[in-house]
Design a protein around this nucleic acid. Structure first.
Lengths: 202, 202
DNA sequence: TCCTTTGTGGTACCGATGTATCATAACTGG
DNA sequence: CCAGTTATGATACATCGGTACCACAAAGGA
């Protein structure tokens, strides 16, 4: 019988152990035994809660996805009622950059999974396609509604694609150590400034 | 004595085998034996030409880097004498997107290495930092010289960062299957159009 | 109360993988 | 022509990693 935690909690603890480990030592060094050690449980327990390694990886991916959604919901909820388009965009992009250590770990592991999915179609490549796609549609819709704040001739769909690709590219460059989080934020601010500027500045 | 090829050629052949394999089945399934099979040589030969696996990976990374530089030199040489800034930028970005199969393989393997380097600092993280940094400086310089063609208030350094991050982000989204190469090119063209537009279009 | 389900530990097994070893050809310089 | 370096083959070895198996405790319902 479980001492203090139930099934779902145990699974979450193990999944989080995997994420910590993968963020620290890379997804390639994620082994059943290593995950067990990181989570402070026995190998057998990892086997018990996740039948196979593939299942463990899959479940952890879902865990990551859910955590990301949760953070995004929180951030949206923190905004006051009717959200100006610019605030919405800024909130979105703030989540897209690996700023603190926690966010860095998330992005690192997420990227590792994405690279894995590029050659392993069986490993649900879904999240890495459907997720961004949905986000882009949502963002495009928001921009379309706020067309008045955009420069003339701006294409909401293209702008949405640009924003997300830019944020992702900047995020990666931070992960790899090419630039600091601050400098990435500066570039992003520069972009958003120009996006929401109707006419040339005097 | 080698039948028809010399030492350096053999090494190149094996490295290219590794790249093909990694592009097809992922870097995680790159093993000494698999590389040997892909290159059509015996395991012993891979061992002989590259003492250890780490050495093989490292050498292949250099191989990739060199190949990339070569392609870039070619593309620049194909341009007519005095290069307009816009042409330069377009040539640069054309190389940055995984369009054909060959380019896709290159980007895929390069990205795999980059992700690996995020947690394995001993594996020369250099290329993934120094390379883009140098490129960004070069691009910023080009844009600074062409300030006349840019909108007023445009910051060449920020624009350079934006271009490269955008290209990289788009490249990744193509790799992962989120968008097609054509759509990525369209977004990139959209961006370059707006970058080289001084005033609002009539 | 007993038997079934759930949770936990320990450990064995088999395949894969990096590396080391032994043998041997092929060519080269003296 | 003969050592010796270079190149190649086959195979052995040790380790690691995923999975399977066995034993057992602790409930929980019939």
């Amino acid at each position: 019988m479980p001492r203090t935690v139930d099934h779902a909690q145990r699974r979450a603890m193990i999944a989080e152990g995997l994420v910590r480990l993968a963020a620290r030592e890379g997804l390639h060094s994620v082994t059943m035994r290593a995950v067990a050690a990181e989570a402070g449980v026995s190998l057998r327990l990892v086997q018990y809660y996740f039948e196979t390694k593939a299942a463990l990886l899959h479940a952890t991916l879902l865990h990551l996805e859910e955590a990301s959604h949760a953070r995004w919901r929180e951030r949206l909820a923190a905004l006051p009622g009717p959200v100006p388009a610019r605030r919405f965009v800024e909130a979105l992009l703030a989540e897209a950059l690996p700023t603190d250590e926690r966010s860095r770990a998330f992005h690192l592991v997420w990227t590792s999974y994405a690279v894995l999915a590029m050659t392993e179609p069986d490993l649900a490549a879904q999240p890495f396609v459907a997720g961004p796609r949905r986000l882009e549609r949502q963002l495009a819709a928001t921009l379309r509604e706020a067309a008045g704040e955009l420069p003339e001739g701006a294409d909401p769909a293209a702008e949405a694609a640009r924003l997300l690709a830019l944020a992702h590219g900047l995020g990666t460059s931070v992960l790899v150590g090419q630039r600091t989080g601050d400098s990435a934020e500066a570039v992003l601010r520069y972009h958003v400034d120009r996006l929401f500027t109707r006419a040339e500045p005097a």
